[in-house]
């Protein structure tokens, strides 16, 4: 099974659009990606219990890479790790990658069947193509 991905954002619309963009790079390919975004009322916010549920839903035993936007998304993702089972926690990587670029890199490698550490590494170098192009 491919490595699972979870997208954590303050905004449901932002997360869904990021996933749509990543899926656009993978026509016809399977990808296990979950979204945990927005607060309980559909407003801006993050919810660690929703993140924990999303991790459990995409975890096939081969690992999960979590990508997030900023601020409370980071704190909630870390808190979510306190809420999942011990064996699941060991398979999860919280990626410090930029959300959009990291997700695209992770999605392409995950769909190609790479292992968790490879997927996480690809997410982390998500800015590299843009930096190389713009000379930043």
């Amino acid at each position: 099974m491919p490595v699972g991905l979870v997208v954590v954002s303050h905004s449901r619309a932002l997360a869904d659009a990021a996933v749509e963009l990543a899926r656009g790079m993978l026509p016809g390919r399977e990808l296990a990606v979950g979204v945990a975004a927005g607060d309980v009322d559909g407003g801006l916010g993050t919810d660690a219990t929703a993140i924990a549920d999303a991790i459990a839903a995409v975890d096939s035993g081969d690992g999960v890479v979590v990508l997030m936007d900023l601020g409370s998304a980071v704190l909630s993702a870390e808190t979510a790790l306190e809420l999942v089972d011990d064996d699941v926690r060991e398979r999860v990587v919280l990626s410090p990658a930029p959300l959009v670029e990291g997700l695209v890199g992770a999605a392409v490698t995950a769909a190609a069947g790479a292992d968790r550490d490879r997927v996480a590494a690809e997410a982390l170098r998500g800015l590299a193509p843009k930096q190389a192009h713009l000379g930043g």
């Binding site: 607060d39 309980v40 407003g43 801006l44 916010g45 993050t46 919810d47 660690a48 219990t49 929703a50 601020g71 409370s72 704190l75 909630s76 870390e78 808190t79 306190e82 809420l83």
Partner: peptide, 17 residues
């Protein structure tokens, strides 16, 4: 768990923790 679920901002995970 209630604060983690309902606060939304950074005080959710912080007070929740």
């Amino acid at each position: 768990t209630t604060l983690i679920k309902t606060v939304g901002g950074a005080s959710g995970p912080l007070y929740g923790t």
